[in-house]
Design a protein around this nucleic acid. Structure first.
Lengths: 184, 184
DNA sequence: ACTCCCTGTTCGGCTTGACGAACGCTGGCG
DNA sequence: CGCCAGCGTTCGTCAAGCCGAACAGGGAGT
């Protein structure tokens, strides 16, 4: 259990999450309905925010409360040999395939996305170190980094860097996919 | 997403955790180094505590901060296809739905699994803190913790604790799903 | 150059939370 | 019964958080 001073952790988390969203301090304060002076003091580590204040910020940042208060501990994890990964079906009609093991310290947010044919969605580059995973659940997609797009059918999986410009495009109607955003 | 007023949740969590520990309000206030009047107002729901105050209480109660602020969500969470707040982008035919934000320090391994009707796959409990996310891509599944299984169709999403016995079962032929194993 | 807008930071004020001291209450014990 | 100890609540007082304004710095456009 981490029992360090929470104020510094909050300050760091606040700035980290805000920059992840790519908005300014003033903009975040505006959306959260708090004075930017308050937010400035919080990010500078001086200050002892109230729950309401933090909550308003968490809502705008669209992160659970705990991500702001619980410090990100660098997880030193040990996976013993033979653990888990090769999930072959023993004596049941199951198969398991590991697509991508999670690198240490990474965060993966799960989304489902849908799209209809039309203009491609141009996603600008996210923060460095971002990786995107796409697993198509319906339709056909054409996605990937600009210049290196691939076409994917149902069940296909692709991963590509998210810190460079990339696109998503529906080839047929009714496209859906699981999108995993991985941050370092 | 839980976006309810946090004060009531905090009030309830405080009282719950305190009674779990079996100490009185005055005793908790004494150990935490805060005035019992403050604690009284907090447990009554009136008040907007500062982080330092809550932190002191959390330390004494020996619970992570998030347990006080994040309301206890039902262990099995289901988001049906099309449900959830979809963030539609303005001028493109895209929607994105955040299924589960990644808690700090967690690792998420991505799998695809397939199954055919037959005996349910009985998965024994994984290490404590494990959470499983399931998003059905084909067929119909019946999965979840033993005694709390839910039936899921294409596009449905469910999360449930993986550190308790749970099952996966294919209801129809040709079942497939994305399985995300989340470790703390 | 100037202007405009936005960034993030420092100041007075006003509101509000935290404190300590009372309060009423209950239960144990002589 | 009286007495005391502990409980949880409700008051005033003081400090601290929050706010708004005013501040300096940085680009972009004229």
């Amino acid at each position: 259990m981490e029992r360090t001073a929470p104020l510094a952790a909050i300050a760091a988390a606040l700035r980290r999450e805000r920059e992840r969203m790519g908005i300014s301090l003033a903009e975040l304060a505006r959306r959260a309905g708090i004075a930017k002076s308050t937010l400035s003091q919080l990010e500078s580590g001086s200050g002892n925010p109230s729950v309401e204040t933090l909550w308003a910020i968490a809502v705008v940042l669209d992160v659970p409360f705990s991500r702001l208060v619980d410090p990100v501990e660098s997880p030193v994890r040990v996976i013993r040999a033979g653990e888990g990964l090769a999930l072959a079906s023993e004596h049941s009609p199951f198969t398991g395939t590991l697509l991508a093991a999670c690198p240490p310290g990474a965060r993966r947010d799960l989304h489902v996305i849908t799209a209809e044919p039309g203009a491609a969605r141009e996603a600008h580059a996210h923060i460095p170190g971002t990786t995107e995973h796409l697993l198509v659940t319906a339709g056909r997609w054409r996605a990937g980094p600009v210049g290196g797009e691939v076409e994917l059918g149902v069940g296909d999986y692709a991963r590509f860097p998210g810190d460079r410009p990339h696109t998503y495009q529906a080839v047929v109607a009714g496209c859906a996919a699981v999108l995993v955003m991985e941050y370092v």
